[in-house]
């Protein structure tokens, strides 16, 4: 399984310090065994009805410290399951960042001030460029570190570990 490197999608913009609780609240976890059955609760508390506004290929954009707090991987899994294909933020909480890499969801650290809600942007993950088609602005970012890219490229940690086997 390989990963798309050229993305194009509509932006869903969030502010600084969005907690993993706000992405997916703990109080919903025990409503189903399989978290994939809980997609409708994503951002339910801070942006009710969010799940219905997402189309495959959309891009989530945030400020500082996105995903802080809980280690719940469901937060990343459910964002991906809704169809979001990348997250751009000024900075990420480390467990959330790691979870995204591990499930094959690209996470990019960059200045996000010039990207607005509902803008259409293109992202080239390998070249480290963003083109905001709505504002005609271009942005560059430092590409994901090579060792993490290898995990992303496999579609996540499971495929990566299977590929490198016991030697990793």
């Amino acid at each position: 399984m390989s990963i798309k490197t050229q993305l194009k999608g509509k932006v869903h913009k969030f502010e600084d310090d969005i907690t993993a609780d706000y992405i997916f609240a703990g109080k919903h976890r025990a409503k189903a065994e399989n978290v994939l059955d809980l997609k409708d609760y994503v951002f339910n508390e801070i942006r009710p009805g969010f799940a219905k506004t997402v189309a495959q290929g959309d891009i989530l954009v945030a400020g500082e410290n996105f995903g802080l707090g809980s280690s719940r991987e469901h937060a990343a899994t459910l964002i991906k399951a809704l169809g979001i294909e990348a997250i751009l933020a000024k900075s990420f909480a480390r467990i959330f960042y790691r979870n995204c890499i591990n499930i094959g969801l690209p996470v990019i650290e960059c200045d996000t001030d010039l990207i607005n809600e509902s803008d259409i942007i293109t992202v080239d993950l390998r070249r480290g460029t963003i083109n905001n088609l709505s504002t005609n602005q271009n942005l560059n970012f430092r590409a994901v570190p090579e060792s993490l890219w290898e995990i992303l490229e496999c579609g996540g940690l499971v495929n990566y570990l299977k590929k490198i086997g016991e030697e990793g």
Binding site: R72, E73, A76, I95, R98, N99, N102, L157, V158, L161
Partner: peptide, 8 residues
């Protein structure tokens, strides 16, 4: 860590 990583 997350649950996938725990499986690893």
């Amino acid at each position: 860590i997350g649950s996938t990583e725990a499986a690893g």
